[in-house]
Simulated scan of single mutants.
Amino acid sequence: MNNFFLFIVTLFCWSPTWYVIKFQLGYVDPLVSVFYRFLIAAIVIFVYLIYKKKNLKFSLNQHLWFLLFGVCLYSLNYVFFYLSNTYLISAFPAVVFSTVVIMNILGEGFYFKKKPSLKTLLGATIGMIGIIIIFNDEIFNFSFANGTHVGLFLALLGTFSASTGNMVHQRNLNNNFSLIPTLAYSMLYGSLVTLLITQIKGTELLFEYSFSYIASLAYLSIIGSIFAFIFYLRLLEKVGAGRAGYVGVVMPVLALLISTIFENLEWQQDLIIGLPILIIGAVLVINQKIKPIK
């Protein structure tokens, strides 16, 4: 599959998830919904692997890396973003997630000793200016009484966790880990860690039998988890974590359009000015030659 196809399919699998998550909020605790989402995804992948008679035996060291990958990308990442959606309109966490492209390239420098170029640093700075413009009211009028700040902070934590997961996957790629079994075990471990968090919090394991909850859970588990991550991680394998993160740059635009249609989002001046600046910064980061990491 060519890179453009992988990019487009990933984009259209993921972009609606920011809005679909809203149907998971309410009766069932968000953390419990994250647990259900990735447990279902893991079971589906394991069934496929067993049907195909694929190898499911791995060393303890490999399982530890599966665990770390799962905790970063399929537990903490989504726990933070589900919680941020309780404070922010669905498109805004997607805007914050666009900074993953910057975190990915900086992460490649930190973990794989790849120094960011001047163009990368310039793009990162411009991108941060875009975020500051979009959230200037929340940043410069900080108040713990305003839940928007909590949502913004949680979205940033979720983005950092996702970027760290990308770095772990890059490391696993360098050690010839097979993608689909990695996804199965990592999603399973991620879901179990989330379950552990819910039990530490004393959260009740409820389930909502409404059509909206079940349908949104099915979409998030199958399309938003299995297919989206297979395509995204294949893209990461081919172009590197930095360029693959460009999905996160374009995604907010589609997420904002979805919020405009379904949540009556009004495009205020801060958003109209800040979003293009954020995209310009990220494009500067992407529009450069990135040597493969060995």
Rank of each mutant, 00 (worst) to 15 (best):
V239E: 11
Q24M: 07
V28Y: 13
I286Q: 03
D29I: 00
T159N: 05
F177P: 05
F5W: 12
P93C: 07
Y185K: 02
N174P: 03
S212N: 14
N77D: 12
F153H: 02
H169D: 03
I280C: 09
V100F: 00
Y209M: 10
L118S: 05
W18S: 05
E237Y: 12
G190F: 11
L6W: 06
F5R: 06
C13A: 08
F112N: 09
F140A: 10
L39I: 12
Q288E: 13
S259P: 09
I293H: 12
P276L: 11
S33W: 00
Y213N: 08
A42D: 13
L73G: 11
L68T: 14
Y19S: 08
Q268N: 14
T125K: 01
F58M: 08
K54I: 02
L192C: 07
V44K: 03
L271V: 08
L220T: 00
S33L: 02
L173V: 07
I134Y: 07
S225P: 10
G70P: 12
L217I: 03
S117Q: 04
G190M: 09
I200E: 01
I223E: 00
G158V: 10
S163Y: 10
E204S: 13
N136M: 06
T86H: 04
W65Y: 15
Q268V: 06
K57D: 09
V79G: 04
P181K: 01
E266K: 15
L31H: 07
